[in-house]
Amino acid sequence: MSAAQVSRQAWVLAGRNVTLLGRDSAELSGALVSPVVFFVGFYVPLRGVMSDLGIDYAQHLLPVVILQAMIFVAISSAEALAGDVDAGMYRRVRSMAVARLAPVLGRLAADLIRALLAVAVGIAVGSAFGFRFHAGVAAAFGFVGLALLFAVGLALGADALAIRTGAKESVAQTLMVPQLLLIMISTGFVPLSGLPSWLRGIAGQQPVSRFADAMRALASGGPTARPVLLALAWGVGITVVFGLLLVRVLARPAGERR
């Protein structure tokens, strides 16, 4: 099958996914409301605390709120794909003359759109509370690009899990705890110096912190090369590892309809 055919098939399936998302008002509103709730929920109470510590909290907080929304994108991607596996849709498509990669590419394309929406909502609510891009247009695009890279990298892994298990509810619940740990035990809410010393080792190195640091540097200005390279290293690493995992899962037979 040629690349053109594969991308056409993926395009068709992406259209289906986007249509389904557009019809699911609870899913859509959840995707758009959650960045607002988390930004406002942390910003308003903690703004005073953080400005006492010398931190402009809108500038500090927005990256982690957006990164959390990106994790939610990956989780809902897994949920939707597991739903397709569970309903037999995935097996149906696999039985036709469609590339194995097409359903996943279609899924990822729809995820990208959802991620872009969430990033836009996040930046809008952040701007309302004083978040600004101080480092120019290119850096702003870098900010958005890093968020999307994070979303796609995680979605690859989540999709692999979804195809492997095909269990809609348990996939979402399984991913919820690591999500919360990654988001909270990071430098996203509190700078490294505000964390207890026993937590700093893990909290400073883990991917959410690296991405948040890079996005903050891209938004606020200052030295960007090092944080962005570290975030890119994580992003590429996640994408490669989860991508290989996904390819392995795709190579297996589609299995029994559940």
Partner: peptide, 13 residues
């Protein structure tokens, strides 16, 4: 998590 991550900052401030 609140204790570990936010506790020190809130207590200090």
């Amino acid at each position: 998590v609140f204790r570990a991550v936010l506790g020190d900052s809130i207590t200090a401030a």
